[in-house]
Amino acid sequence: MKRLFPVPHVIGFASSLLLSLIALVVIKFDLTFAMGMTILGVTALVQAGLQLFLFMHVSENEDKKTLFTNIGYALFVGLVTIFGTLFAMMWGYNMG
């Protein structure tokens, strides 16, 4: 039975639950917007990293360089789309 539950997986699972709980502080306490976003950003990124490295085994693949480039490129385009859209449609727009 024990060999079906490898320790890294169990620790990973516990950490992801814990990180979700930590993220809750942003609604339980009266934080500034910047502080709240930072906490959410950090907890979400760490969780994503957990999934990626621990559960999706990204670094065991013989093409891991390609995989990292792929994810990096996707994040580049994704973030450009999100922040570029906000910049063009809202922030930059209101600046006059």
């Binding site: 979700s20 993220a23 809750l24 942003v26 609604i27 959410l40 979400a44 994503a48 999934q51």
Partner: peptide, 10 residues
């Protein structure tokens, strides 16, 4: 996780 953080909690 991103929906949870940046849609709901935010």
């Amino acid at each position: 996780i991103f929906i949870f953080s940046f849609v709901y909690l935010k």
